[in-house]
């Protein structure tokens, strides 16, 4: 009787432990070669726009030109 209870307890614990393997996604990240997977940079939305480039060009002419 005691060994039967022990067997059931072991089976229950083993079942619980194995079920844990199929729980929610543990944050596994799949990588594609050369594809950026990090967070989005808000600068990417403005970089390359005409206004952005004009501002930098004005700045360049203001501070980088020869003295």
């Amino acid at each position: 009787m005691q060994s039967k209870v022990r067997l059931i307890a072991v089976a229950w614990v083993a079942g619980l432990a194995l079920a844990g393997c199929y729980g929610k996604d543990g944050g596994l990240q799949l990588h594609q070669p050369g594809k950026y997977v990090g967070a989005n940079d808000p600068l990417l939305e403005i970089a390359g726009t005409p206004e952005f480039e004009q501002r930098l060009e004005r700045r360049f002419n203001m501070v980088q030109t020869d003295r």
């Binding site: 990588h31 070669p33 950026y36 970089a47 390359g48």
Partner: peptide, 19 residues
């Protein structure tokens, strides 16, 4: 190996330290 680099439209190479 974790692809943490990206390049902006104006050619600046940046990276994500969380990656």
């Amino acid at each position: 190996p974790v692809d943490c680099f990206y390049t902006t439209a104006d050619g600046v190479v940046l990276h994500d330290k969380d990656q």
